[in-house]
Every structure is written in structure tokens, then in C-alpha cells.
Design a protein around this nucleic acid. Sequence first.
DNA 1: AATCGGAGTCGAAGCGCTTCGACAGCCTAT
DNA 2: ATAGGCTGTCGAAGCGCTTCGACTCCGATT
Lengths: 339, 339
Amino acid sequence: MVTLAEVAQHAGVSASTVSYVLSGKRSISSTTRTRVEESIRELGYHPNAGARALASSRSNIIALMVPLRTDMYVPVMMEIAIAVATAARAHGYDVLLLTGEEGPDAVRRVAGSGLADAMILMDVELDDERLPLLRGTDQPSVLIGLPADTAGLTCVDLDFRATGALCVEHLALLGHRDIAVIGEAAAVYERHTGFAERTLDGLRSRASELGVRLLHRPCEGGYDAMAATLARVLDERPGTTGFVVQNESAVEPLLALLRQQGRAVPEDVSVVAVCPEQVAVQASVRLTSVAIPAQEMGRSAVEQLVAKLDGRGSDDVVLIAPELTVRASTGPAPAATPA
Amino acid sequence: MVTLAEVAQHAGVSASTVSYVLSGKRSISSTTRTRVEESIRELGYHPNAGARALASSRSNIIALMVPLRTDMYVPVMMEIAIAVATAARAHGYDVLLLTGEEGPDAVRRVAGSGLADAMILMDVELDDERLPLLRGTDQPSVLIGLPADTAGLTCVDLDFRATGALCVEHLALLGHRDIAVIGEAAAVYERHTGFAERTLDGLRSRASELGVRLLHRPCEGGYDAMAATLARVLDERPGTTGFVVQNESAVEPLLALLRQQGRAVPEDVSVVAVCPEQVAVQASVRLTSVAIPAQEMGRSAVEQLVAKLDGRGSDDVVLIAPELTVRASTGPAPAATPA
DNA sequence: AATCGGAGTCGAAGCGCTTCGACAGCCTAT
DNA sequence: ATAGGCTGTCGAAGCGCTTCGACTCCGATT
């Protein structure tokens, strides 16, 4: 393993000079610089991460805590994770992958050991037990998701409230008066995951403003669960003509079931999804949807974090504005059936 | 930030004693040990990762290189990644997430900087450009996936050859004579990703042994692509009664299309999938399938790696035996239609 | 002509930990 | 009784890097 000292010797300069060439923290004559750079290349030198971290108390690592639950909105998680890793590299950081398994201890461990300079938390619950720790440490952090109390925290998320409102609005403008919301699995609501509750909030308040009737039902993924949920919904509100779906793995089952029951989309029934772009495009009916901008969320979280690490941070809540793309799954409400 | 020295002082012992309590590398009297442990708890001490890495030249970090392409078999990737992270923690390692983006340079960087003690590579191509580097370094590594030449490498993968064979076999035993294989997107084959080609190998050789006719067609995910592919298949081989699908995002579209064309599953047509358990169970027809054991692959890779790091490693290829679970999507071939 | 300041370089002092050799007790085998 | 071997502890020497102060030139300022 090549060391700084060897590079220095090879280039005929002192170790500190090499260090300054690397960091650019002091001016170096261009002749020396090129000589050193050549030596580095020639010897295939890579600075030792541990030594660097020790001396500078900067690890150049960002910790990313992803939820352990792999059963939910997985592709989104993955996309965010990859976006985070990519964006972090672009700023010279590596990413340490922590699972939610360790829980709050992970925060202590990472902050205490100097393993990472900062952390990004995903899957934040409304009243997350990691938050007090985060507030108590001076380690910069960014949340992807919105807890109930954001004081002193930096958060990045899609504006799910606005998302909910947007969906209702779209359907209402098309004349739908009875809308059913197919939500995430009940467990998600029980855990008080912010995004689910906030979407619901947005849906409900806009619905009442517009005088639209709303029925919300959580739903596990999969065909059978969706079938049961749909049956209950149609039983309770036979006049339902609009659906808002916020559960990737319920989308295709819903479409299949509607088709099977002879309800045409979008002629008889309209469907709006809150899901990744890809799901909306690949579905059997191209779905009108609000995309979950996973990439942007990941990138933006890193940007916020890097800003903080560079001392130009702020405790902001960045809410990404939702965009509704109209595709083939929504249309005017059918003429009201006689009462 | 609490240091070893402070703990030592608090406990009234020398720094080295604290270190030995932590590492267990020398015997310590139980009285001293408990005293030190108490001080550690009381002060909330966490060893500094950088210092530890520098002094011991061990970072206790495993690097995980995941493919950048987020468009393919994503949930499997994620599940593997999480399994790796979890298993690694159980052995005292953290996981550094690298995207494929950097390519071979990432290998150099990680190996050169001592950032990680070892690495796990996913999405290995048959003739992967990272392999020479891996062979050239003394950094332990494990591949998830199988390259063409495994000499000097440790690999973990599902036995996709056997998987292919198993699928054909199952259909052949049920009397199917004309089988169509719906594969991954063409790009996957063009990249010479091992698993896709090896599945095909297994399918073909077993098919010819059993005298079954096989038609293989790559297919992008999604409804439209599947529709086009299915049309071509049925045009070319109208007598097709068995399908093997190795493409998660083609599964549901295929089922929907068959239904739509009045071909009942499993009465008229049988479908076997190679996909994660969850997909098979949640599909609109519960699918007979060979599961992709993501968890086990991740866990096993870590196990191999840790063994290597502890000096009891071997350059093995661990092929996980496929298991075919019969569900509701396969049945006896219908009576042959008159010629 | 004397002074000042910036540019460029060096040496040395750590950063917090591991680990090696040394040593003081104590027990056991001769 | 004495040598030998354990056990438990300590001190000191790094690990490879960053960074601070100091020093040397050299051109620009008065």
C-alpha cells in the first residue's frame, strides 16, 4: 500500500506539500504540483481513508438509514438510495447503508464513532423515536419524509398533502362525485408514516371543499386483498366512479378487477394513481398519476446535507410540488345513474 | 467526543487496558473489566472509527456494488442489499453502498484507500471488466452472480441452469410439448448477464433432452411490450401451451393478456415464473414458480466473505438449488388439437 | 536601500486507537 | 526454597494523514 510519504519521496518534496496538493488548501507552484501529481499517478496512490478521517475528523461518508421492511414501496426506496449514492459521489462522499433494524442505536453509533459525517433518514414516522437523538447531536442530518414536528430539522419530501388535493381536484373537475381512495396497507397507517396520513389529509380537505364524497380504505397489496377491498367499497358506495390509488401493488389488481366486472376505464370509472412514473406507464391502462420523484428526493436530500456540511445549511423543509400527468385512465364521469 | 484515554482515566487504568477490554485480545481480570465497562457506559463512549481503522488496518466495512440500472429486477436487488446489510451487521461490519456508475474505478478506489475490508459485487456480467482487478488485489471479494470464468473467485448465485431445467421439466411432465420462454429485456442478454443466459441454457438443454420444443423471446417489461411479444409467439407457434417467464414486470401483463384472449390459466395454458416469492403469490393467478432467494443470496455472500476475512475462506462457487413451488398456474396440457 | 508581504515549502505535532514488549505478582513444580 | 510459567497490567511506538507555525525567497512599496 502506497503512502503519502512514499509519494513525497518519489516527487522529492515533503509530505505536507503532497497533502496540500491533494487538498488545495495552500498554494503550490504549478511545477511542484504537476511533479507530485505525476508521482501519484505513477505509484497508484490512494489516500488512506482511516488516516484521513483521523487527522481531519471528516470521514467523507454519509450514512443512509433505509427501512428494514422490504414489503413496501420497495422500488421507490431503491431508487432513492441509488440517487443518494450517486449524488453523494458527485460531492465526494460515499454512502454507508444502515438498515432500520438497529433503530435509534444506529444513530448513536454513527454519530459517536465518527463513522459518517452526516446522515439521511428514510421512512420517517410522524413521531419518530430517532428524532430526539438527531436534535441532540450536532451531526447534520436530513430526513426524507416529514415528521409531525419539524422544528430544528431539515426535511425533503413530496408534498403529499398537495398530492392528495391534486388527485381529488382532477377527478372532481371531470365531474366525479363519489371517490374511493385505495391506500397503503393498514400497517402503514398504524405506524403513522407521514406520507400516507398527509395524502389522506389533502384528499379529505380538498374533497370537502369541492363537495365530493370520499371513502378511504387501506389495502394490502395483491390481487386477493384488492378484490376484497373493492367489493366492500362498491357495496358501501355503489355510485363510485373515481379511484385514487396510493399503493403500487394494488394498481394492477384494481385494473384487472374493474375490467373483469365490466367497468371500463376510463369510460365508466376513472383511476388516478400516486406511484412511480414507471408503474404508471407500464400498467395495462396508462395511468393518470402523480409521480413519486424518487430521484429528485434523493438528490435533493444530498444537496441539503452537503450544504449543511459546508456550513451554508438551513433547517428547511423542502416540499417538492406534485405534478399530475394525465394519461388514459381518467375521463369525464358517466352521466349520473338515475337515483 | 469521548476518547479511549478519557475512559481509561475514568476507570483508573491505562489506555491499553481499555483497548484490551474492548477487543478481548488479552485476558483482563473480571473486576477491571466490569469497571471499564461501567465507565464506557457512563461516558457513552464509542470507539472512533477512523483511528481504529488506521491503527488496525481494518475498517470493518464491506463494500457493496449495486448496479446503477434501476429499471430491472429492482426489488430483488433491494432485498439482497438489505439482506447483506443485515447479515453484515450481525458480524460486526457496516456496508458501504457503491453504485455501478464508477465502474472498475470503484474497485481501485476502495481497495486502494482501505475504505472497506472486502467487497461484494452484484450484477456480474459473464466477462466483467472488474474481474481482473479483483483477481489482482488481495482484497477479499464475493460475487453475487456467476461470470464465465470463476477461477480464483468466490461466487454465490441461484443455480439458474438448474432453474431453467426445472421449469421445462415441470411443464414437460404435465404433457406440454410447445413451450415459450418470455425472457428479460433484450438489453440484458446483450450485456451477457450470466443469469439470463444460464437460465436459457438450462431450459434449452433439458428441453432437447425431453423432446420439447422451445421458443425464446426477450421482452421488455410492461403491457404493450408483452402484448407484442405474445402476438409474435402465438403467431409463430400457435400450439404453445406452456410459458416460462423470467421477467417480473411481464408476469402480470401476460396473465391479463391470456385472460383477455380467452385462454384460461391453467386449463388451456400453463405459466411458470422465475421471480421473487412475493410476485408469485400476489399475482392475479397464484403462480407456480421458482423463487429467487434474494435473502439467502445476500446472507450467504456475507457469510462467505466473513469466512475469508477470518482466514477460513475458500474460492468456492456456491450455487443455491432452485425450488419449484406448484401453485395455481400450471396444469396438464390440454388434449392435443387435431393437426 | 530598507521594508513589507505574499507565495511556496518544510518540519513537527498531533488525531485516537492497537499492539508489542516488559514487568510485577502469584502459583506450581521441582 | 527457587526457577519457571501464568495472568493482568502498563508504557510507548507507531498507523498515515492534516494542519499550524515558521522560514525562505522574491518582487513590490516607500
